[in-house]
Nucleic acid binder design. Structure first.
Length: 565
RNA sequence: GGGCCGGUAGCCUAGUUGGAUAGGGCGUCGGACUUCUAAUCCGAAGGUCGGGGGUUCAAAUCCCCCUCGGUCCGCCA
């Protein structure tokens, strides 16, 4: 519906512009004026026209507006300084618009584009910590956003089973007599992390052990020792089981888990090395490396160690080459510390004429004391973060509601706790560095809880009315008042916000929309009587449509919309 | 040393393809619960957009210098 009104406005401008000696070069885009008093849509075309016509933008705006035939949905079009502003006629428009909103509101038309999106991909050497969660939340929110914007998205978790970390753990089990199950922790991934930490301490004290770890890496890569292979796989699967549980709790599920070892066993890694060799970009100097000096990257990319084994980058190259065959776009969510690595990798892919990934980078989350490290055992796990969030939410509910059953309290505190975490991460633009503080992350004033609260209020109201919502009809004579108009105005923006955020691949724009929508709804709720008002049915429809939009908007962020709070 | 990212009210932050009074939130201060849940609403105070130069009719936004913080420059991943 929004796109249709925008189109009408654009057409009316285009038609009017024909009366001037001016060619429109680019596709006309409208924007939202900074506040509703200035209208609902605005065009900036007069700046460009002014240059060609050698008149002031303000004058052009006045002349242009005179030529514009006002389309029916608008009440008026007027020049405001250099802008041409359109005012929606809410008396006519509101009913038609609200009737277009159904459960699918926000879902845009399918576009023919398959995206392979890799996110999280944390090493399976311990539990997820709050550094990883930013990757997971950005990746998952982006997936939801892109799907809603009509793209076909497949998510992948790249499993680093061949790295030094897993070899360390296997070494700990085989040679240091450590056992995963004996570690002091509840969850299996935490047990793996504990064991990894212990092996690190041992190896740090006794550097000769490093060669034993190297031997494990080499043997696993060779792949002839069945028992060893099984042990590697068992360690990784153990850890992954715990990681998947954590992700599931914050509503994240990957379509595929792709093991890097796969690309060794199927020969893709060798093929990649050979292909680059044939292309003439490989040099040898004990190690085999990719020389990128011609591409203005001074740092060479090592593809084989002096003992012949491959490196992370080698396997990643094979993985990305394959990913390029699986979709139209390869999208990676990566910490900004990977910038150089991915640049090198992209050059490698370019040399092979393969698809180069598009990358969403995010800056680190650090603790006030400094950065986190699984190796040193210094981190806050996502499980601990969730537990704390849910606990705080529970205290909050218990202080407000005494009429709920224990089961209800548990369910709601889980929804609110998870929401607070996801919202906190999603609302910041990814290039912003975060110093983690509990109180910032877990705020229930405003923030996510107030949005969920708006939804709960809407639910309660609909239930309390005891009417058959699907049968309600909007009063033909309804002329929305200011609070109603403000709410409708925000509702119309939803599809535009989705399209815009999806094009920019920036999810934090959605959080602001959620906040705006909740604010508009809460204000309406506070100021206007619904049940018992002469406009009861009409307002109930408005409440229901707001509820749907709130729910769908929260869903883009992986946040659930409770019916009670 | 070089590359990349960030610095916006007491705190967190949006806006960075140049254009409307720099938009939110927290906190502070003052109001609103006999009325559909006050996790709410209304109002107010609070800004040298890190600093300095420059380009422009117009700069938080573009260019140059400086500064503070993060990060990368592994035969780690």
């Amino acid at each position: 519906m929004y796109f249709e009104i925008e189109q009408q406005a654009v057409n009316s401008i285009k038609k009017a512009v024909k009366e001037f000696d001016y060619e429109i070069e680019e596709e006309l885009k409208l924007e939202f004026p900074p506040n509703p008093e200035l209208g609902d849509l605005a065009s900036t075309i007069c700046f460009a026209m002014a240059k060609k016509l050698r008149k002031s933008p303000n004058l052009v705006a006045e002349e242009l507006v005179e030529k514009i035939e006002v389309p029916e949905v608008f009440k008026e079009v007027k020049p405001v300084g250099p802008y041409v502003n359109f005012f929606i006629n809410y008396d006519n428009f509101s009913k038609t618009f609200l009737n277009t909103i159904d459960e699918k509101y926000g879902q845009l038309k399918k576009v023919n584009e398959k995206i392979v999106l890799e996110h999280t991909s944390a090493n399976p050497n311990g539990p997820l910590h709050i550094g990883h969660i930013r990757n997971a939340i950005i990746g998952d929110s982006l997936t939801r956003l892109l799907k809603t914007a009509g793209r076909d998205v497949e998510t992948q978790y790249y499993v680093n089973d061949m790295g030094r970390q897993i070899a360390m753990i296997v070494f700990g089990i085989e040679d240091l007599n450590l056992n995963i199950q004996n570690q002091a922790a509840d969850k299996i991934d935490h047990k793996v992390g504990q064991l990894y930490f212990k092996v690190n301490e041992e190896v740090n004290e006794n550097q000769e052990l490093v060669s034993n770890v190297d031997a494990k890496i080499k043997a696993y890569e060779a792949g002839n020792d069945e028992t060893l292979n099984e042990l590697f796989e068992k360690v990784v699967n153990n850890c992954l089981t715990g990681v998947k549980e954590t992700l599931a709790r914050i509503h994240i599920k990957h379509d595929k888990f792709v093991w890097e070892g796969h690309f060794i066993r199927n020969g893709d890694v060798d093929k990649v090395v050979n292909e680059l060799q044939d292309a003439g970009f490989l040099r040898e100097n004990e190690v085999l490396y990719l020389d990128l000096i011609d591409f203005e990257i001074e740092k060479e990319l090592v593809l084989r160690r002096s003992d012949g084994t491959s490196l992370y980058a080698t396997r990643d190259l094979a993985y990305h080459k394959w990913k390029g065959t699986q979709g139209d776009v390869v999208l990676d969510v990566l910490g900004s510390d990977h910038k150089l690595a991915i640049e090198q990798l992209s050059k490698g892919l370019e040399i092979m004429h393969d698809k180069v990934p598009e990358v969403i980078f995010y800056e680190f989350i650090t603790l006030p004391e400094g950065s986190m490290s699984t190796r040193k055992g210094v981190f806050i796990s996502v499980d601990d973060l969730i537990d704390e969030a849910v606990k705080r939410a529970k205290d909050e509910i218990n202080s407000r509601r005494l009429d709920l059953s224990d089961d209800e309290v548990d369910k709601i505190s889980e929804e609110i706790g998870i929401g607070a975490i996801r919202f906190y991460i999603a609302k910041l633009s990814p290039e912003k560095h975060i110093t983690f503080k509990w109180d910032d992350a877990l705020s229930f004033e405003r923030g996510c809880a107030s949005i969920q609260y708006a939804h709960a209020r809407a639910s309660k109201l609909l239930k309390k009315s005891e009417k058959n919502i699907s049968k309600l009809v909007i009063d033909d004579a309804w002329k929305p008042n200011e609070n109603e108009k403000d709410l409708i105005r925000v509702l119309t923006k939803f599809t535009q916000v989705i399209e815009d955020s999806a094009n920019k691949k920036r999810v934090h724009l959605i959080t602001q929309y959620c906040q705006d929508l909740a604010n508009a709804f809460n204000k309406f709720y506070k100021s206007e009587q619904v049940i018992g008002s002469p406009l009861e049915d009409t307002r109930l429809v408005l409440v229901e449509k707001s509820k749907i939009t709130l729910k769908n908007a929260l869903n883009l962020l992986g946040v659930s919309a409770p019916d009670k709070m």
